[in-house]
């Protein structure tokens, strides 16, 4: 695909504050087109905030954040970016198909193509047999998949998925990861998946490791393992976290007054 902008997402000096607290602090990274990028880190490290900044629902974002060649949250991006929040955001008093039908209308998918798109999204998340069940009567995992199906409508170029596999059984998790790969390989979608389960990291093309609002690493899983001499991404992550902690205590000891944090 010819593209003027080499990366799907480019961030430079990205900072987010919430209630006076800095949640993301000077992030700089790029997310390549058509690949699966994993966003990993412990709970509360800022993964969801970063995703909200990408889709333009986070307030108080400073620095540059370019998504598909436009500033994040630009109105032109709204039909081009699919977003799945951590908690399933669907109407529990509608069936799966009615949910998808409504969101498809909101996305501006033509009435003619709507039914086919809805069927395809239902098929993608393996919910065809439950299409006419009320979302409120479904299990948590099924409801999560309805929410995921909504994000697949209209073939978005970028998918931002906030912990889509949390709480799912191993079979479903494997199936979803197959779907993510299919979306990237066959439909050319860029996928950003957050997780705090490290074994899922191995299935990504690239990884962003986040801790306390700062980026610990931005690399491929193989490169991360080899640069840290670890066998798994989990080990590599723990190694990087320990190193960061050691660095922090060293800087704290060397600077008498807690002035500005020294950039790494």
């Amino acid at each position: 695909m010819m593209n003027k902008h080499p990366a799907a997402v480019e961030a430079e000096g990205l900072k987010v504050t919430r209630g006076g607290r800095t949640v993301l602090d000077g992030l700089g990274f790029t997310i390549p087109h058509g690949k699966i990028t994993g966003l990993l880190g412990p709970s509360g490290c800022g993964k969801s905030t970063l995703m909200r900044a990408l889709v333009g629902s986070q307030a108080h974002v400073t620095g540059t954040l370019t998504v598909l060649g436009r500033p994040a949250g630009h109105r032109d991006l709204r039909p081009r970016v699919g977003y799945v929040t951590q908690a399933p955001s669907v109407y529990t008093d509608l069936t799966a198909r009615q949910n998808l039908d409504y969101y498809a209308a909101v996305l501006g998918i033509h009435r003619r193509d709507r039914a086919a798109q809805v069927e395809r999204a239902l098929h993608d998340v393996d919910l065809t047999s439950h299409a006419d069940a009320l979302a409120g009567a479904m299990s948590g995992g099924q409801r999560g998949r309805v929410s995921l199906a909504v994000a697949l409508l209209g073939e978005p170029e970028l998918l931002v998925l906030d912990e889509p596999t949390v709480g799912l059984d191993p079979v479903l998790r494997r199936d979803l990861w197959k779907l993510f790969h299919r979306l990237a390989d066959e439909r050319g979608a860029t996928v950003l998946v957050s997780s705090h389960v490290m074994d899922e990291a191995e299935r990504c093309h690239r990884l962003l490791l986040l801790r306390d609002g700062r980026l610990l690493a931005d690399d491929t899983p193989e490169a991360l393992r080899s640069s840290t001499g670890a066998d798994t991404v989990e080990e590599a992550f723990l190694h990087l976290v320990d190193q960061a902690k050691a660095d922090e205590s060293r800087t704290e000891a060397s600077t008498a007054a807690p002035t500005e944090a020294t950039p790494r």
Binding site: R78, P79, V81, Y83, S89, V90, Y91, V106, V150
Partner: peptide, 17 residues
């Protein structure tokens, strides 16, 4: 509170709609 509003507002839906 269910997150559907946040989702709708990331989509091309006007507030007036």
């Amino acid at each position: 509170t269910s997150g559907t509003l946040e989702r709708l507002l990331t989509m091309p839906l006007g507030k007036a709609d």
